[in-house]
Design a protein around this nucleic acid. Structure first.
Length: 209
DNA sequence: ATACCGATTAACT
DNA sequence: GTTAATCGGTATA
């Protein structure tokens, strides 16, 4: 199957949890600072706009940092966490609806040598591109790229026909959002179940997670 | 202006 | 399991 860059019809949907689910198995690509890198998305979290206590846009909050969340789906929302980590989100939903999906993990695909330099890693271990800060760093995504259109040629996401069945996906509450009260319990985190994925990898086509 | 803290990670013990 | 790192956003005054 030919790789198709995801577009408006995908990003402007408002079922953000389902969208976060569907991003699993898609390929995130970046061409930043003169280097092309890509990876298969293995973990995401949905943040449901103004009604979600865990969202930066909860209650309709609109600041210099979060205003990009109100753009039409298909742009990057990148913010600094703990003063160190650049966390990358995909803005989704119609213009005015501040949904977002946090990228929490990738499986390195292309430009791995560049990723290793960015990560200052000698080997590709368990924590190489797992976790939102690590995944962003491997891809070279920084806060300066917030607002970048995913329809452009710097950061984009492709469907390369990688199918990840529901059985291979673990659905859990989100990480690190205890402050969100009851919303901290929502099943908005999607992560590839590695033990199942290995089974599939051996018994099925090599391009299935 | 000042204070507090986070959608985290790596390096410790 | 514990903790330092490090700074912009947000609330409070």
């Amino acid at each position: 199957m030919e790789a198709i860059k995801l577009g408006t019809d995908f990003y402007e949907r408002e079922d953000v949890a389902q969208l976060a689910r569907e991003l699993i198995g898609k390929v995130i690509c970046t061409a930043l600072d003169g280097h092309y890198t890509s990876g298969i998305i293995t973990e995401t979290e949905a943040y449901a706009g103004i009604i979600d206590k865990a969202s930066h846009a909860y209650g309709g909050r609109r600041t210099a940092r979060t205003k990009i969340m109100y753009a039409a789906g298909g742009v990057a929302y990148v913010y600094l966490c703990y003063g160190i980590h650049h966390l990358f989100n995909v803005v989704t939903g119609r213009s005015g609806v501040p949904h977002a999906v946090l990228l929490r993990g990738i499986e390195p695909l292309e430009g791995v040598d560049v990723m290793m330099i960015r990560r200052k890693a000698r080997t590709i271990g368990k924590t190489f591109s797992k976790g939102p800060g690590s995944a962003s760093q491997a891809l070279g995504i920084q806060t300066r790229y917030t607002g970048t259109s995913l329809a452009g040629n710097r950061i984009w996401i492709e469907d390369r026909g990688i199918a990840v069945p529901d059985k291979s996906i673990l659905v859990t509450p989100r990480i690190g959002v205890d402050y969100a009260g009851e919303d901290a319990l929502l099943p908005y985190r999607f992560v590839v179940n590695l033990s199942l994925s290995r089974t599939l990898h051996h018994s099925s086509s090599p391009h299935h997670l």
